[in-house]
Write a protein that binds this DNA or RNA. Structure first.
Lengths: 187, 187
DNA sequence: TTGAAATTGTGATATTTGTCACGCAACAGA
DNA sequence: TCTGTTGCGTGACAAATATCACAATTTCAA
């Protein structure tokens, strides 16, 4: 399990065995079943999560009861309600498992210790944050420049497997389209 | 000029005079006039920019000639075509001045030197990257949960001055709405 | 000052997308 | 196996938004 984390980090910064032992000691491992919630709306958010295996989604439920998927998190992804994680407020979103999943959990305190303790890890998280920012920007561009059909095609091209792993309602609410419209587009 | 940068950084990490002198030495200052382009589509992107004063926009022009505003950058903001900045490819977007502007420029090499040289700066940029990521996520949520009118109101509430500083075509193309629709919404 | 260009509002209409309703098929749990 | 739930497609219609056209106003440079 931890090996996956090491590989993942070492794509960006190489680590000695001792360094990785230090890093690794800050994570705890957890198993979740399909449909379980890792974070519920209103929770204190103490952890961010590295997905070892499985599939998660970060969801916002609006007042009218509609679900909006802010992001999916597949293997090797980091996820949390970051706004809340960094400001220590209560979760506005929930983080749910779409498949049985194994995650590594990191508390905010340990995250800060890791960053302060080894510049390598701070660098690693900086690179990840950049990648996240660039990814979000791509998604914003997609909203600005593309209609529903084009956004669907872009998502399909980027994550073809996603459509086999989850029901089509979910990509629809990630794309900001009703499931009926998505159904018509994809047929 | 550099004082603004120092204040800005010190909101996150305190710096000694020597430290700031070291940081400051990596930036060069530039003036641009309204309508000038700091980055043009196709350029090599060598710098990222800290806006001392003025107003910039990051724009993507699609094949059909439509303009899409990926972001505005006001005083105290950092901006660049980050994807390109970090991957050393050619600009897909352009960065234009909406007012006479003063910016501080940082090359990628110097950015890396700064990060490697002082953990404080790496930490500073990490915090900035998080804030950027959270901001993008907010905008994505806005696309997912809100119609044109609500998005307009959110933007207006967040940056009321923007609507006095630029023509209404621009907020429209930031919101992903035609200028006609925006005009009808705001009247 | 003056004339050209840019900005803005608004009507008419087309297009895209959402909503509601329904039936059928697949699937999971008792 | 039975049965309720969920997922999926699709028709009919409604709502949101885009597009095109035009006139009034403002801005700005010669």
């Amino acid at each position: 399990m931890q090996e996956k984390l090491r590989e993942h980090i070492e794509k960006i910064v190489p680590l000695t065995d001792e360094e990785f032992a230090f890093v690794s000691a800050h994570f705890t491992i957890r198993n979740y079943k399909k449909r379980e919630s890792i974070i519920c709306k209103g929770d204190q958010v103490n952890h961010c999560y590295f997905v070892v295996s499985g599939l998660l989604m970060l969801v916002y439920d609006d007042e009218s009861g509609k679900q909006h998927i802010v992001s999916f998190a597949m293997e090797d992804w980091w996820e949390s309600d970051y706004l809340v994680y960094h400001t220590n407020t209560k979760a506005t979103m929930s983080l749910q498992c779409l498949e049985d999943s194994i995650v590594l959990c990191l508390t905010l305190q340990d995250y800060q210790k890791l960053c302060a303790g080894t510049q390598k890890m701070e660098h690693f998280f900086l690179e990840k944050a950049h990648a996240g920012h660039i990814g979000s920007q791509r998604r914003i561009m997609s909203f600005l420049t593309s209609n529903a059909k084009e956004r669907y095609e872009q998502l399909f091209q980027r994550y073809p497997s996603l459509f086999q792993r989850v029901s089509k309602t979910l990509p629809a609410s990630y794309l900001g389209v009703s499931r009926e419209t998505l159904s018509r587009l994809s047929s």
